[in-house]
Nucleic acid binder design. Structure first.
Lengths: 325, 325
DNA sequence: CTGTTAGCGCTTTCAT
DNA sequence: ATGAAAGCGCTAACAG
């Protein structure tokens, strides 16, 4: 027998000897309603006793808005670091009564409109920008916050932007301080990463005039790039991330170069492999816990109609100095 | 103005000059209903023209079941490879009209019952096992498929189990074939990974009697483990994954050992850093595309009440031979 | 302070 | 072959 009748608020009401309205008021702590502590307790008892869980569908249907925070995951590798952040974000939101749900898959497979129209989420997070029409449609449909984690500055939702620019800047800064005049930028091979790579590169450009070369994740082909940089007189490389940095290291090695004497390298992310590299990789990390907390606060504020808090990006990004640069 | 009235099936009906029931029949291709191609087309036109998207909430409320496949993501690092699989799974399910949604966060933060009772998903996937009570409750509530991606064999849902055991077996097999008599198993430091590590180790044990040592992701401490293995006469190491393998490599290097002459190493996953390692790492990969397709087929079958297909695990797991072993 | 009531948008008998 | 109507479980006016 498939459906032993779901427990509804009516069941709770009956057991507590009150009306369904009262149950609703108690469970939602509806403001502007004064419920006597006695009934309140009785309702809570009954609900707990029955193992009652409200139907999200019914509530959403009624209120026109769900408690879901929908996060659109792009089809490119988002990395363990970001995955970690999403986990933290999820727990932080749960504490606020919001359900974090991630939907992976490129926009082509399923029009994103289909997804959010179906879910009617309280907020939608995305890594990439939405078109203005899309944003407009979502807001019109009652989505409280529509925000792109990356995307051009100055747009709505800019508050949440992970300061990618700062990452590149920190890399260049570190290399400059350690005496490197001519810098190179190791750009990722995967075109899907461009959205991250561009702002990072821009950050490095703000401090230096790096020679940009694309570095595939392959020792032999990375070696070609490294040879090119050497010919240019480049002595320090800002890599898009740790994996690209590892490729640069491998390329330098096949050329018989010594790191960091001949070529210094700095990555991004501090993946486990970074500290195990030869030599151990200097890199830039983001404080994922802090980032998640800030995202959560912003979302909760927006859903509640309050203004977003601000976060000093400086404390978010840190250089981990090891031996490669 | 927040809510310019959502477009409902009534709007579509009006525009098409039919009743809401007919709209529903057309859009759901309800079997046992014969709709004239003419009206059918008119309804489809109207729906498309209005940009109609059905309300998941209303449909769920009515049918008592949503089209969501809920995947519970554990709080331990699940890795890029698995992330990739989930993306593929999502697109495969989308093609079948199912919405894949991932909920990260440990079970402690939010009782999982709260999540699934709210969503009433068509299926629930998890990496770890559910308790029998939990499983029972979910099935009773109408969840078509409850399945653990790992978890003891012989349970319901065993069909979906990623053959972790086979991974360890392949590693040991490869090392044996290349002439290694005494094997070691490099166990991960992070206790949360135990659920993956145990079956892998068991697989290796099926072929050999590996000396198990825990290897932290740190060259110095990994060196201690390596020294121990050397004293035991071990010449080949099966590592829990590529990161641990990288640590073993680093440990061997600090001891002045040569890989694979002094110590052969084989990892799991084929992360990008593996091919860039010194020396490039031999490893075992899972065909993520195949896995995702199989998961999707199984889920769709279960939701549709059909029996699950089977998958030969042999084609799923492959050894990538490089220089480390 | 608590109960009555009217839907939210959809599916699905049962009539026509 | 199509339509009318009854709710799914919940919330929010409005009464009492």
């Amino acid at each position: 027998m498939p459906d032993p009748r779901r427990i509804t608020s009516a069941d709770v009401a009956r057991r507590a000897g009150v009306s369904r309205a009262t149950v609703s008021y108690v469970l939602n702590a509806t403001p502007g309603q004064s419920i006597s502590p006695a009934t309140r307790d009785r309702v809570l008892q009954a609900a707990a006793g029955l193992g009652y869980a409200p139907s999200a569908a019914a509530r959403t249907l009624r209120t026109g808005r769900s408690d879901v925070v929908l996060c659109l995951i792009p089809d490119w590798p988002i990395g363990n670091e970001m995955g970690n952040t999403l986990g933290n974000l999820s727990t932080a939101l749960a504490r606020e009564g919001l359900t974090f749900l991630a939907h992976p898959g490129s926009r082509d497979d399923r029009p994103i409109a289909e997804v959010w129209k179906a879910i009617t989420p309280a907020a939608v997070l995305s890594f990439t920008d939405f078109s203005d029409d899309e944003t407009e449609a979502m807001r019109a449909a009652g989505v409280a916050l529509v925000v792109a984690l990356l995307g051009r500055a100055g747009r709505h939702g800019r508050e949440l932007e992970v300061p990618q620019t700062l990452i590149g800047r920190r890399q260049a800064d570190h290399l400059s301080r350690t005496g490197h005049q001519r810098l190179g930028y190791a750009y990722p091979d995967d075109p899907r990463l461009q959205i991250f790579a561009e702002p990072r590169l821009a950050g490095a450009r703000a401090l230096a005039e790096p020679v940009v070369r694309t570095v595939p994740l392959d020792a032999a082909r990375a070696a070609e790039a490294v040879a090119g940089w050497r010919a240019d007189g480049v002595t320090g490389i800002c890599a898009y991330n740790d994996e690209v940095a590892l490729a640069v290291l491998a390329g330098a090695r096949t050329l018989g170069l010594t790191t960091p004497a001949d070529l210094a390298v700095i990555g991004v992310d501090d993946i486990p492999a970074a500290r195990l590299a030869v030599p151990p990789l200097t890199t830039v990390t983001t404080d994922q816990g802090l980032l998640a907390a800030h995202l959560a606060t912003t979302i909760v504020a927006a859903v509640g109609g309050r203004p977003a808090p601000s976060l000093s990006a400086d404390e978010l990004i840190r250089v981990v100095v090891r031996e490669s640069g």
